[in-house]
Design a protein around this nucleic acid. Structure first.
Length: 494
RNA sequence: CGGGGUGUAGCGCAGUAUGGUUAGCGCGCCUGCUUCGGGAGCAGGAAGUCGGUGGUUCGAAUCCACUCACCCCGACCA
């Protein structure tokens, strides 16, 4: 009989639930290296879907891909003061360029760094690529005609984090980083905001994650940026997840790497910069936004398998059913990522559980009764079962997947909206923020010192100053008692 | 990096206090037969350097030291 699915529930232990969903969905596995995970095929395929669809958007907004080296001369990191401050503590360093074999006293063999191979200048494994990219931009930019320069790269980066969490924070992760150069400040700001819009649209339409776009406070800003824009998502435990950032870097990197251009008047000016990125953290956001107590739930647009066909047969009708299943499979496979699970060693129920835990949005069961009716028995991962006509199945499946995609976004939005609160005093905030986690929207009037104090008392941080800013005329900040300056969201965050 | 916890077969665990032949159990895996609409049944079988290194001992999964990884709670961060 139906035994317990054995998954820790979200309400029992949200963190354990998250780890189990990842393990059962076969997204990640541990590696022998601290903080570094292996992206298994089912997890990597989600990243590939993200890459494809984001890359299309980057190309559509005029960007080109390039690739810059993994290794950065150590001296580059120190060229931009705030930047080095931000990344020095977590930089991995290459100091030698070869190993040599040696024999231990007990006769066993080992390898050690060859002292003869010490690098003249150590190399930093990139934590982000601003420095090496701006070094190169200095060679490529000379005239206003070279601008804007709009480049993106898909890469891995390394940040030696103290505490890691699968997808959300690991020592090595995959991401994309866009780096653009502009002739004017206004144009650079426009670019940074435009890319935040791309992220916002992508998060909602592809990942089905509603996000709050906004600006970071000075305290939360990227190291070396004048302005950091962010999209903040709400996880099911009421914690915020910074899901993408876009930075207006001013002329900081141009100044540090001496990147100037000659304007139309013939004068030399420093170039204006932006950078923007999203990472495999987005996969964590997808998991924590949509998954349920039965396991992974994936939006159709990023699901590695969108439709699974499970034939159900007895020996007598095996041939008929498998024939129909194959026919359906061939019909769908040109349009969807579809899997025909015709394994003979598992019974249907076992297959249902397996695909459920892998987050497949739509399951089509096909038994002799269905074949006789000219239908498949469809089950949505989001709930709901119905007969689906085999005739014209492709169009119908397309509609159903679209409906699931929309349903996930709406469900997430309703949940998120139900977790946005307001408070009228600091006391109320301190009392509620941890017993009732969520986004707290306040007409903020504080400064960095106030943010620090609030975090020390509650562990909540200022997540963003939303792009949409209704007037705060005449309002007082409930957290500081100072006159309100602009609206801000506070939350616990990952 | 500080405090706490856990490492025994692919997964989940017992065994460790009080050291003692061939280290068990459930699930999974392999073979065969019967099954097949929500985790199949029976029979047979394979799989472990007990996280690693070093020590104590006639003898170590068990005791000691060091070390690695993971998890939880803090400090730091995408």
């Amino acid at each position: 009989m139906a035994r317990s699915k054995g998954l820790t529930t979200r309400s029992e232990d949200y963190s354990a639930w998250y780890l189990e969903v990842i393990a059962r969905g076969q997204l990640l596995d541990d590696s022998p290296v601290r903080g570094c995970k292996v992206l298994r095929p089912h997890g990597y395929a989600i990243w590939e879907a993200i890459q494809r669809q984001l890359d299309d958007r980057f190309k559509a907004t005029g960007h080109e891909n390039a690739y810059f080296p993994l290794f950065i001369p150590m001296s580059f990191l120190s060229k931009e003061a705030e930047h080095v401050e931000g990344f020095a503590k977590e930089a991995a360093l290459v100091t030698h360029h070869r190993l040599r074999a040696f024999t231990r006293p007990d006769g066993t063999k080992g390898v050690e760094p060859d002292p003869e191979s010490v690098l003249e200048e150590p190399l930093v494994v990139r934590p982000t690529s601003e420095t090496i990219i701006w070094h190169m931009y200095g060679r490529w930019i000379d005239s206003w005609r070279d601008l804007p320069l709009l480049i993106n790269q898909w890469a891995n980066v390394v940040r030696w984090e103290m505490k890691t969490r699968p997808f959300l924070r690991s020592a090595e992760f995959l991401w994309q980083e866009g780096h653009t150069a502009h002739a004017t400040s206004a144009e650079a700001v426009e670019e940074a905001v435009k890319m935040l819009d791309v992220y916002t649209e992508f998060a909602e339409n592809v990942l089905a994650i509603p996000v709050l776009p906004g600006r970071k406070s000075a305290r939360e800003r990227f190291a070396g940026a004048l302005e950091t824009y962010t999209i903040e998502a709400m996880m099911q435990n009421g914690w915020a997840l910074q899901s993408g950032t876009s930075h207006f870097l001013g002329q900081n990197f141009a100044r540090a790497f001496d990147v100037t251009f000659q304007n139309e008047a013939g004068e030399r000016e420093l170039v204006w910069a932006t950078s923007w990125g999203v990472s495999t953290r987005l996969i964590g956001a997808v998991i924590m936004t949509h998954s349920d107590d039965d396991g992974l739930v994936l939006p159709p647009r990023v699901a590695p398998v969108q439709v699974v066909i499970v034939p159900v047969y007895k020996e007598a009708d095996k041939e008929t059913v498998l024939g129909a299943a194959n026919k359906l499979f061939r019909e769908l496979k040109g349009r969807f990522r579809v899997k025909l699970d015709d394994r003979d060693n598992l019974r249907p129920g076992a297959k249902f559980f397996e695909w459920e835990q892998k987050g497949v949005p739509l399951r089509l069961e096909l038994g002799s009764r269905d074949v006789a009716k000219g239908q498949a028995f469809a089950a949505k991962r989001t709930g709901g079962k119905f007969g689906l006509d085999l005739e014209g199945a492709g169009d119908r499946v397309s509609e159903v997947l679209d409906a699931i995609q929309a349903e996930l976004l709406e469900r997430a939005r309703a949940y998120r909206d139900s977790m946005i609160y307001s408070v009228d005093s600091r006391e109320a905030f301190d009392e509620k923020i941890n017993s009732q986690p969520g986004f707290y929207l306040v007409p903020w009037g504080g400064d960095t010192a106030d943010e620090v104090a609030i975090q020390e008392a509650t562990r909540a941080t200022l997540r963003c100053l939303p792009m949409e800013q209704p007037s705060v005329e005449g309002l007082t900040c409930p957290l500081t008692g100072k006159p309100s300056v602009e609206w801000a969201y506070f939350a616990r965050s990952y």
